[in-house]
Design a binder for these strands. Structure first.
Lengths: 336, 336
DNA sequence: TATAAGCATGTAAACGATTACATAAATTGG
DNA sequence: CCAATTTATGTAATCGTTTACATGCTTATA
């Protein structure tokens, strides 16, 4: 029935020694006589013994487990980038002997937690700016790493959004574009603000005047972008490029452009952000900024484990660079 | 420092009662006097007490945790459907108060496990036919549910692959197609065999002769499909439809068709399998079989928890139906 | 009024490991 | 050869809970 019947006590009885010696044979072999150790190991193997992590954790105060917290509203779980980030986190944790615990009851609502594993640390993906649980962790200085958000007192990994946006816009300018629409997200979202900052500074560096009318505040959705951009295009014939702050909005933009009777990318270029899986399969394929999701997840685990094992002092911080992936949706502006 | 300092013992001391009474106040309130219970609850709340799951698990023998095992070779983690399956599993588990543990060290290699949480059950996604760990679970009758594989002694959830394939091929036949290529996966893979069976039976029911030459054994990859189908198309001018056993191979097929100078779907129709995210964004968008990944994950958790809590006896089995999603890559055959 | 039943609480063992401390045997050194 | 040190092992407490059993008190029953 149970797979977890063989305890250290039984092993001890079988070997005619104390549990302490068995424990030592396993964890501190150098403290045990060659002969005894051999006998123990043999029995251990024969009975397929596996230590009980619960008991171990109880006495050591460490559970070798990291909690992965994700926003409830599906931003993360529903996001295409979930897989990559998640993979990075788990692979990195596994290589250091840590388990990942998914605790859906504990999300950014900050509810009082009913029952919880005493995990060694938290990885929190895309928490909101005022997440109460993050605040709690900041106060208590409990081991934690934020992904996709920053904090002065907690560790984090995040993209350099401004630089990435700057790169995208620079590319468009290099291709001869000057009338570039920015499709931003919601006004108060940090990521979006940073990317807008990058957009602005690229324009400035290249001596192009910032035009407020060329900024659409979408809600990160395909639909809103489609509606808003379509309006904008009818009013402004000069527009030759669109930089959307995520790929979904880029898709909405492409739809609007097509329905306005323009050709992609001949008349209007589009650059997205994220490089989600469909990006390379669309037609034209989408030029976009790729985020190193896997690496960010991997690094997050590493940071957290380093902190837990005191190999490093919190807070650890790391900014990743986005990479502009050139595909078919953006090209040079046509001379008139 | 630690967020887990307040123990039941301290609460007991503060309330001037025994730990037993505190425990009862929490878990069996009806056994405790109104007044005492109130006092305890107050202190509990004031000190933000959260029970230690490790200790609880140790004494109860249950950890309220399910282990999610996934093939090491990235079949699962790298698969686009990971997100949905995973989401279903975790949401369902959370609603019943269970945690999900990701233990990357324990995969289908069947290695001896060094240290492991005594989880209450296992959800194993896409294990190979001869996975030794699955075999072990089958012998020990330990609570477990397989996803995307079947077993006579363990519970499972899986797609009715044959029926789904039959539906796809029936659709093509209804559109007038008779010369339909099947792009199968590797020969020994169960899923692939079942789908091929569905392909054959649809032909048979509709009185179309099965032609061995119309079956390509790919390796589930885009590239191989592209190469093999291109060869086949040059030899057989009659082919008007292709049914690929996954979307990736469908993409390879589309490429081959285009390069053979044919138009999609006018000259040749393509139907895929899986409905991966890019499917709806391609052009033409891909007609394909959608698998209810979310539901399958959800059901897997439910089964497992029912078994653990003895609400049901193993093995529980459930076959899900695929859904044919009509899009732009397949249409009626043109009359000559 | 004695006895049984019911209620509220306490005592202490148990879950499966680790580890400080104690002890006994073996080895070393002067 | 005896004291000091080292080595191997055992004893028992501990981690934070739960729970069987015991205890004492109140209330109902005959």
């Amino acid at each position: 029935m149970s797979m977890q019947k063989i305890t250290i006590k039984k092993i001890a009885k079988l070997a005619n020694i104390s549990t302490a010696t068995v424990s030592r044979a396993i964890n501190n072999p150098e403290l045990v006589a060659e002969e005894t150790r051999h006998k123990v190991m043999e029995i251990l193997h024969k009975y397929d013994y596996t230590p009980n992590h619960l008991a171990k954790g109880l006495v050591s105060g460490k559970s070798q487990t990291l909690s992965l917290l994700t926003p409830k509203e599906g931003n993360f779980f529903n996001a295409f980038y979930f897989r990559e980030t998640f993979l990075g986190i788990t692979v990195s944790a596994a290589s250091r002997g840590y388990n990942i615990l998914i605790d859906q009851s504990l999300t950014q609502t900050g509810d009082i937690i009913k029952s919880r594993f005493p995990v060694d640390g938290y990885i929190i993906v895309s928490p909101s700016e005022d997440d109460p649980f993050v605040k709690k962790l900041e106060e208590k200085k409990f081991p934690a790493v934020l992904v996709n958000r920053r904090s002065s007192s907690l560790s984090w990994v995040d993209l350099d959004n401004q630089a990435a946006a700057e790169e995208a816009v620079n590319y468009l300018i290099d291709q001869g574009h000057t009338d570039i629409v920015a499709v931003a997200g919601k006004r108060n979202v940090k990521n979006s603000c940073d990317r807008l900052q990058g957009y602005k500074s690229a324009l400035k560096v290249n001596g192009i005047l910032y035009n407020e009318k060329y900024v659409i505040y979408g809600d990160f959705s395909e639909e809103t972008t489609y509606i808003e951009l379509k309006k904008l295009l009818t009013k402004n014939e000069n527009i030759t490029a669109v930089f959307a702050f995520n790929d979904l909005m880029a898709i909405g933009a492409m739809k609007a452009i097509r329905e306005s009777g323009k050709k992609l990318p001949r008349d209007i270029s589009v650059v997205g952000f994220d490089d989600m899986p469909p990006a390379s399969y669309m037609s034209p394929s989408l030029t976009t900024i790729r985020q190193p999701f896997y690496l960010m997840g991997y690094q997050a685990s590493r940071f957290l484990i380093d902190i837990i094992e005191k190999k490093d002092q919190a807070p650890l911080k790391r900014e990743f660079e986005g990479e502009l992936v050139l595909r078919g949706s953006a090209g040079p502006v046509l001379k008139k």
